[in-house]
Design a protein around this nucleic acid. Structure first.
Length: 918
RNA sequence: GCGGGGUUGCCGGAGUGGUCAAACGGGAUCGGCUCAAAACCGAUUGGCUUCAUGCCUACGCAGGUUCGAACCCUGCACCCCGCACCA
């Protein structure tokens, strides 16, 4: 345990030194700047290993850019907008056990729990702890700029009001209607987390068609999810046992099932008056005119119709297996039809109208699918449902409206559906309604309904011009990794209107209608701009934070309203645009895309975001994180158990790109000792004497190679690769050098210093410690990134040769060995091979090309070519003299291995790979 | 269904036409150090043998292109993520 304590002490000490030196407090100067951010976390808990990865990617990039000479700004704020904190506080107030347990699990002391009944206490409690946890990992954050959202922070509140007024002015905020899952008892929307059951259920769009009763002013309403099937309507079905209601809706008289009345009130208009009723019997046998088609329908009864579902009336296209079965049953009993007082002839003639072609299916879709599913009776409920589902899928995916469909002919079904809805609504022949996709029960035990909120505010993300700007912005952005670009392209087009206001929760009031709160994904899109002034705005009186003030600071509009405004403007202009923002890949389709839209909507081009990074979801020891597995490890636990540097290194080594990174506890455990190696190196190298050696040039070349590789990886935020190279590969190179020769102290110090700068982004505390031990000035956190010099491939060939010889000698446990160098003609073959191989890789052809130059050697040449064609030519073909020189310069090394080496005559040597005889 | 990403050795994971039996890390086995263990160091870690300038088998499955494929093309199977008003 002593070891652990020592590490904690060391890490805390360096953190304190950084803080005292104000190392991460970023202020504009004349350097080039780099501004990077991580989305502010929602403060209803503490950071865990999942958050850690995304923020560490930001942090490591910040440190890299710092080393590259940028003035780096990495701020961090906190998000409290929305309903989770508000509802959780309510639950604490109601002393709900589940909620109290959640707080206990976050190690909140029992006597503090009642305080959490106030929403603001969540911020007061979790913000400082969240901050402490991030700081304990050694984050290079400018904490002066932290802030939290909502009206609890009046300055931020003013900023968000400015944002929305600006957007509204540009026409990007619109009002419209919107269906939400709603609790009729509590009178508020029921979010996924407010449900006893029905998580994931949502609303589904229906269209109700108006079927006008002949010689009457009554309109029978029948709903469908398949408006395309309006074209195939054959009859109208009613529940023969039901008494339908007649309601006055605006200036029309609708006939619907009783429960539908409430639905009309919730979703269509409050102005609904029940003016009478009519029994199904009075409808059966009459005629109606439905939407889209030019013929009338006969009203007939069907026992599967339930007046309590939907509108209570159904039109039939006889394509649906259920409809078809019902019709067939009826047609088998002509007497029954007669008894109902219906025209037997008419009913017997009813058959499906074919309106859709589905490739690989015949014209009669319903019958065919029933045959396929082997359905003979309506009793086979499950099969019938499956068949219906399958048919709907096929129709939607592959169906095309056939030639009977007039203007819709040739349209794929989804397109036709949209066109038909549009036409039906335009003609006044229908109305939109919504149904639940499944049953939802609110926490208060009440079953939820769909309510259409009439005056909802939306972000107009479907606006064509705006979308175009967003695409332009994206086209100029760097993405890490680039392969997320198609996803972004898709999302920008896919985004429709976004409901940006809520009736409940924490947040900023909509400036022009304070009955609404701005929703949490909408108040977090351009706040990175706020970071640039966050530390200065804290003491500003809110009444000075006017529209003009922000207009000047962020847009440079008009004249500076005050000196402060001028000061703020300067700071904003220095830091903006934002250069890098990293988050989990799940935010691509909302937050990151919203951020693009909002920047484009408000700021001029030069202030649009420059790059986004997206990463996968953290797994823990190979398993998905989940509450039930209990493997969501808090950051504080990781730091306590493994130390900050081992934690940082483990998480960044977990993965890169879009792969799901893995937290590997074994790796973390093992890192402690591995990190110590750098400090040991620093201690030994500090006073190492030793002059120049023959291996120095190789070490220099190799260092250059590794610097280049690390730089390339860092540039792409491929931190795992960078870590592998800068830490593990580098250590191996140094190790080889140390075992290979009496080291050159000066060179070693130089090489280690370079390595330390490169690993600082991963293990800053260890790097500082080693930097200090090595006797270097200042902080390694402020040191310059190394330049990559020239790489000499020849030196690698030489060292590989020595290593190959040494490995063989060790394996054979040799005391004395003869090395057989390749004959010159073989070197000649190698050289000529390299030339010919540009033309062909065919062994036969190569042999023909080479053979004339090497008569008498045909058999050996064949073997050589066969060997070489597999690609084993060294990058540099050494001469015999070079090889001799290399071997003699490694003489000490071979002696250290206890082997005497001499050069001998023979025929089994290859260039760069002498034959070895023990 | 739509959109995106994947499938490599005991494991994690590099590798995107020849230098690949496959980086790096982990694990395992053997050896060193030690009274012993941890740490640390060395070796081995697809199979066969002639231990090699060798052969065979292998990078989800099946075909194809090529002198040559883990890598390119076609088809298939399987896995993961997102699909909205929710942070």
């Amino acid at each position: 345990m002593g070891f652990q304590e020592e590490i904690h002490k060391r890490e805390a000490a360096w953190q304190k030194k950084w803080q005292e030196a104000k190392l991460y407090e970023s202020t504009p100067d004349d350097r080039k700047k780099f501004f990077c951010t991580f989305p502010y976390p929602y403060v209803n808990g503490l950071p865990h290993v999942g958050h850690l990865f995304s923020i560490m990617r930001t942090e490591a990039f910040a440190r890299y850019k710092r080393a590259q000479g940028y003035n780096v700004l990495f701020p961090q704020g906190w998000h409290a907008t929305g309903s989770p904190i508000a509802t959780a506080a309510l639950r604490v107030k109601e002393k709900e056990e589940k909620q109290i347990k959640i707080l206990k699990d976050l190690s909140v002391p029992d006597d503090e729990i009642p305080n959490f009944a106030k929403p603001e206490h969540w911020i007061e409690y979790f913000v400082p702890r969240y901050k402490k946890d991030l700081a304990s990992v050694g984050m290079c954050i400018d904490w002066r700029r932290e802030f939290h959202t909502t009206s609890l922070n009046p300055q931020y509140d003013a900023f968000i009001r400015w944002q929305f007024l600006t957007l509204k002015e540009k026409g990007y905020v619109k009002q419209g209607e919107h269906p939400v899952v709603w609790c009729p008892k509590e009178n508020m929307p029921v979010g996924d987390h407010d449900r006893l059951s029905g998580e994931g259920e949502t609303s589904k769009e229906f269209i109700w068609g108006k079927f006008r009763l002949k010689d009457s002013d009554l309109i029978l309403m029948a709903g469908t999810t398949r408006p395309d099937a309006f074209l195939g309507q054959v009859s109208l079905w009613v529940d023969p046992t039901a008494t339908y209601k007649i309601v006055q809706v605006k200036d029309e008289k609708w006939v619907v099932g009783e429960p539908a009345i409430q639905k009309i009130k919730d979703q269509y208009t409050e102005n609904v008056e029940e003016i009478g009723e009519i029994h199904a019997n009075e409808l059966i046998g009459k005629w109606v005119q439905g939407p889209v088609v030019d013929y009338e329908l006969y009203i007939i009864p069907a026992k599967f119709i339930d007046a309590n579902v939907g509108s209570g009336i159904v039109y039939s296209a006889l394509e649906d297996p259920i409809d078809l079965l019902e019709m067939q049953t009826m047609q088998q009993d002509p007497d029954g039809i007669k008894e109902l007082g219906l025209d037997v002839d008419l009913v017997m003639k009813m058959k499906p109208k074919n309106i859709i072609d589905v490739p690989s299916m015949g014209p009669n879709l319903g019958e065919e699918i029933m045959k396929e599913f082997d359905i003979t009776s309506y009793e086979q409920r499950k099969k019938v449902e499956d068949a219906k589902g399958e048919l709907n899928r096929r129709v939607f995916r592959k169906g095309v409206m056939n030639k009977t469909c007039g203007k819709y002919s040739g349209m794929p079904v989804p397109e036709a559906q949209e066109a038909i809805i549009e036409d039906v609504l335009a003609a006044g022949d229908g109305a939109m309604f919504w149904e639940m996709t499944g049953k939802v029960v609110c926490r208060c035990q009440t079953e939820s309904i769909i309510k259409v909120v009439a005056d909802q505010w939306f972000m107009a993300y479907d606006d064509k011009e705006w979308t175009k700007l967003a695409h332009e912005c994206l086209a100029n952005m760097k993405l890490y990794p680039e392969k997320v670009r198609p996803q972004f392209e898709y999302v920008l087009d896919w985004l429709k209107e976004w409901a940006c206001t809520r009736e409940y929760g924490l947040g900023t009031r909509l400036p022009w209608d304070d009955s609404w709160l701005i929703e949490s994904l909408s108040d977090s899109t351009i706040y990175m701009a706020y970071y640039t002034i966050a530390h200065k705005i804290k003491d500003m009186p809110v009444d000075e934070l006017t529209q003009e003030f922000f207009d000047y600071v962020f847009l440079g509009k008009g004249n500076a309203p005050s000196e402060r405004a001028e000061e703020f403007r300067k700071e904003f202009l220095y830091w903006y645009p934002m250069d890098f923002r990293n988050s989990g890949k799940d935010l691509i389709q909302n937050h990151l895309s919203f951020s693009i839209f909002n920047h484009c909507g408000i700021f001029p081009k030069e202030h649009w975001p420059q790059s986004f990074g997206a990463n996968g979801w953290v797994t823990v020891n190979g398993q998905k994180m989940s509450k039930s597995l209990g493997n969501i490890i808090p950051v504080r636990q990781l730091v306590t158990e493994y130390g900050a540097d081992a934690t940082r290194m483990t998480i960044l080594n977990g993965g890169e790109g879009l792969d799901d990174p893995n937290w590997d506890s074994n790796f973390a455990r093992g890192m402690g000792g591995k990190l110590q190696l750098l400090i040991e190196h620093a201690k030994t190298f500090k006073d190492a004497a030793g002059g120049e050696t023959p291996v120095d040039a190789w070490l220099v070349s190799k260092t250059n190679e590794l610097v280049q590789k690390t730089t390339d990886a860092m540039e792409l935020t491929n931190f795992r690769t960078a870590l592998q190279v800068a830490f593990f590969e580098f250590n191996q190179v140094v190790k080889w050098y140390l075992s290979r020769t009496e080291p050159n102290g000066t060179l070693l110090r130089d090489v280690l210093a370079k390595q330390l700068v490169m690993v600082t982004a991963f293990i800053p505390h260890t790097a500082e410690e080693a930097w200090n031990e090595l006797g270097m000035d200042g902080f390694v956190s402020s040191a310059d990134w190394p330049e990559a010099g020239a790489v000499d491939e020849k030196l690698d060939v030489a060292e590989n040769m020595i290593r190959h010889i040494a490995d063989t000698l060790k394996k054979k446990n040799a005391k004395k060995a003869s090395l057989v160098l390749a004959e010159d003609w073989k070197r000649d073959v190698y050289a000529k091979f390299d030339i010919h191989v540009e033309k062909t890789r065919n062994p036969g052809e190569l042999l023909q090309l080479l053979a004339p130059d090497f008569p008498d050697k045909s058999e050996e040449l064949q073997r050589l070519v066969k060997f070489l064609v597999k690609g084993r030519t060294p990058g540099h073909i050494p001469t015999a003299e070079e090889e001799k020189e290399w071997i003699s310069s490694a003489k000490d090394y071979f002696e250290k291995l206890g082997v005497t080496v001499e050069i001998a005559e023979g025929t089994n040597g290859l260039p760069g790979r002498p034959g070895i005889a023990v």
